[in-house]
Design a protein around this nucleic acid. Structure first.
Ligand SMILES: NC(=O)c1ccc[n+]([C@@H]2O[C@H](COP(=O)([O-])OP(=O)(O)OC[C@H]3O[C@@H](n4cnc5c(N)ncnc54)[C@H](O)[C@@H]3O)[C@@H](O)[C@H]2O)c1
Ligand SMILES: NC(=O)c1ccc[n+]([C@@H]2O[C@H](COP(=O)([O-])OP(=O)(O)OC[C@H]3O[C@@H](n4cnc5c(N)ncnc54)[C@H](O)[C@@H]3O)[C@@H](O)[C@H]2O)c1
Lengths: 218, 218
DNA sequence: CGCGTTTTGTTCTCACGTTCACAAACTCCT
DNA sequence: AGGAGTTTGTGAACGTGAGAACAAAACGCG
């Protein structure tokens, strides 16, 4: 389920606030979901609550982390060290959640001379060599859209089985490879859509009020 | 619907490739969805196809853009010009899709002296003044998680009605305000989950094969 | 020890989104 | 003009996920 990471983060917040036990209602409120849905999600992992009391925050945190697979460290490779790639490489939120930037790759030779956040940028042609040094299962694509499919193909060929794609393209990958995409402009367009509908509704209200006014005056 | 932007992008690709007419099957293949679903989505906007022929790429493109609200320009304000904020401000993909970075805001005074991509960084305290100069409906939050809720509250108070949140927190906003969130670590955790399940399945297969071997040898 | 209170785990129902399947409509060819 | 072939638009079945409601279990207290 895609909600488990949200629960996990909310639980971490609670733990940091010194709270050791919480009810499904409280946790559900923190993630903006229905409490019944939350309980159903958690019961899917097993019975980790005590009736009449609630859930032990630390225990539940561990159980969710185990379910997701965060008890181990996941090395990640970032491909395309441009604007976005730099920001990702510098991002400290990775490490604190069980992910480790294990390699930075770029096709441009001049990029390969620098280091970002203490990690050297290597040539994308050395992909196989890099993966031979450290086994990496997750690849992040931060290249221009035109290069994304080619990069994905090579990552898959090199044995990567999970891809996080920031380029605005839908990637085609063989079965058995997971792809998630993060698309800024799609999100903005969805916001624009709602924004426009709000504006349209306002106009309609305005027109209705105007019409009512006319009616009254007639 | 959240799929319209995907269709739009696929159509733009087709148009750039010089294709002027396409069938629902082709377009559906380009976005990895069922063709019936695509047709139903499109029929929701109206009957913009010709039976036996397909859809006119440019015409459909315009209709979807109109439905989403991309016939107008959407000014966007970015709050928090750190690692991520810089990358966003430098991102050219905004403008080409109907969005314009209209303002950059940050709380740190030293940030406010620089310009990013030709746009001056202003103090977050000047929010109201900035919005008075240009009306902005969409705000992007790229501040640390701890500051996100406070920033969101002030954005809403200043009249922003759509928020794109990059900080790993769930924001509480009044009804009538849209929030979308982009969370890197959630995406990575979902990938890790699938990755782990794959590893688990392999182990199970291995165990089954071992068990079968034992059985045979017994 | 029993009763009331609280909160989980689960069952049931319902609504939504997805998919199949087919009729209507359009083009092209004869 | 008519028929063959294609492709849209949509009605109906299907499956999945969400929410409400309730029974089972734990705790506290008299
Ligand atoms: N910058 C942002 O804020 C932002 C936001 C959303 C989406 N994106 C998307 O992320 C991607 C990267 O954006 P960016 O602003 O960092 O672009 P960029 O041009 O700054 O960086 C792209 C990098 O990829 C490298 N590259 C190009 N082809 C490559 C290949 N075949 N193999 C390996 N590396 C290759 C380039 O050398 C460059 O360093 C784009 O697809 C963009 O649409 C960026
Ligand atoms: N860098 C990444 O690649 C990345 C990826 C995913 C998510 N994020 C998230 O995006 C957010 C920003 O990340 P970052 O790496 O750019 O952090 P950063 O520390 O580099 O930048 C944060 C910026 O926000 C400003 N700021 C702090 N409090 C503020 C306030 N109250 N009002 C206005 N501005 C304020 C700071 O001055 C700073 O410039 C974080 O929440 C992070 O978790 C970052």
């Amino acid at each position: 389920m895609a909600r488990l990471p949200e629960y996990l983060r909310a639980l971490t917040s609670l733990a940091e606030a010194g709270i050791s036990v919480c009810s499904s209602e409280e946790l559900a409120a923190a993630v903006n979901v229905n409490s019944a849905k939350l309980r159903k999600d958690l019961s899917y992992l097993g019975s980790y609550g005590t009736r009449g009391v609630g859930y032990d925050v630390d225990y539940l945190r561990y159980q969710i982390a185990r379910e997701i697979g965060l008890t181990q460290d996941w090395p990640v490779a970032i491909v395309g060290i441009g604007n976005l790639g730099h920001a990702l490489a510098n991002y400290s939120g990775f490490g604190s959640r069980g992910f480790r930037v294990a390699a930075l790759l770029d096709a441009a030779p001049e990029r390969c001379e620098e280091s970002v956040a203490g990690i050297p940028v290597r040539s994308f042609d050395d992909l196989d060599a890099v993966l031979a040094e450290t086994p990496i299962a997750i690849g992040v694509i931060a290249t221009p859209a035109g290069a994304a499919q080619g990069v994905a193909d090579r990552l898959v060929a090199a044995g990567i089985t999970s891809i996080l794609n920031f380029a605005p393209t839908t990637l085609a990958v063989p079965a058995g490879v997971s792809v998630r995409k993060v698309d800024l402009s799609v999100e903005l367009q969805i916001l624009a859509y709602h924004e426009q509908r709000r504006a349209g509704a306002e106009e309609l209200r305005g027109a209705a009020i105007a019409a009512a006014g006319e009616e009254q005056s007639a």
